[in-house]
């Protein structure tokens, strides 16, 4: 039995930016089973559909999972109102495919856009000083996780659209410069689809393997309902894969975007 549904205690919760919350949940056997890139599907009281949230930290020793999520609507608002000590109803660890982690001494470029940053932290921790993290946000008030990325030992490049924190510009500009100074072994990315689309073509041009984590409106979270379809190429044909079961991580060359 890979998946578990249950109620688990929230052992810490704090706001880390405007409408962005950082929560740690004690769920030892889920933490034990979880891998980098997977997600948890969380029940919000009074809502039909669970909210899929990527895993930002897996602590197998202490049996905890960390999630960082943004309030996007009423459901995530309800989740943000849960307090330390309360129980949270989760189904996890979900996602048939997480990130492929190479040997720790390989060179990785890890790119997160906005709320696409949290799932990238465990990758940075894996590669440590062999990683370059490019972390992008709208503006200074949206910036999160910079201390965590720095603590991983990675070289961190912070970008904001308006230059109010870090350098001004998009993550794709920083990626272009990084690629000029040397070819990494792998690129990982999570963020808005316009960002992913650009990164995928940059990786392809540079001839670097690239993995992206996708999101789509989700139903069951395990591959039973087929609603979270995303366009991919499989065996030379277009195929609607499902983010929950076939992903959420996909090889860059599999993914198709709407024009």
């Amino acid at each position: 039995m890979k998946y578990t549904q249950g109620l688990y205690p929230i052992i810490s919760k704090k706001a880390i930016a405007a409408e962005i919350y950082d929560m740690t949940i004690r769920c030892p056997h889920i933490a034990k089973a979880a891998v980098c890139g997977q997600f948890v599907n969380i029940k919000a009281d009074g809502f039909m559909l669970r909210r899929p949230i990527s895993i930002c930290g897996i602590d197998k020793e202490n049996g905890t999972l960390r999630i960082v999520f943004e309030v996007r609507g009423k459901g995530t608002k309800a989740l943000s109102q849960l307090a330390e000590g309360q129980l949270i109803d989760i189904v996890a660890p979900l996602g048939g495919r997480g990130f492929t982690l190479l040997e720790k001494d390989k060179k990785a470029v890890i790119i997160g856009g906005g709320i696409g940053n949290p799932p990238m932290l465990p990758i940075a921790q894996h590669y440590g000083r062999n990683a370059t993290v490019i972390s992008g946000f709208r503006n200074a008030s949206a910036v999160i996780l910079q201390k965590d990325f720095a603590a991983s030992g990675a070289d961190v490049i912070l970008c904001t659209d308006d230059g109010s924190a870090g350098r001004k510009g998009f993550v794709t500009d920083a990626l272009a410069e990084t690629l000029k100074s040397g070819k990494p072994d792998i690129i990982y990315a999570c963020g808005p689809s316009v960002m992913l689309k650009r990164i995928i073509s940059q990786a392809k041009e540079a001839g670097v393997k690239c993995e992206v984590s996708l999101e789509e409106r989700m139903g069951c979270g395990v591959g039973g309902c087929l609603v979270c379809a995303c366009r991919t190429i499989r065996d030379g044909e277009e195929y609607y894969a499902h983010v929950c079961k076939d992903g959420p991580v996909f090889d860059a060359e599999e993914v198709l975007f709407d024009d």
Binding site: F47, C225, A229, C230, Y239
Partner: peptide, 20 residues
């Protein structure tokens, strides 16, 4: 069959819409 383009699901009060 490949099914419909996403989004294929929308939450509603006490329910949901789907168009897989």
């Amino acid at each position: 069959r490949n099914g419909n383009l996403p989004p294929r699901i929308a939450e509603t009060p006490s329910g949901m819409l789907n168009s897989v």
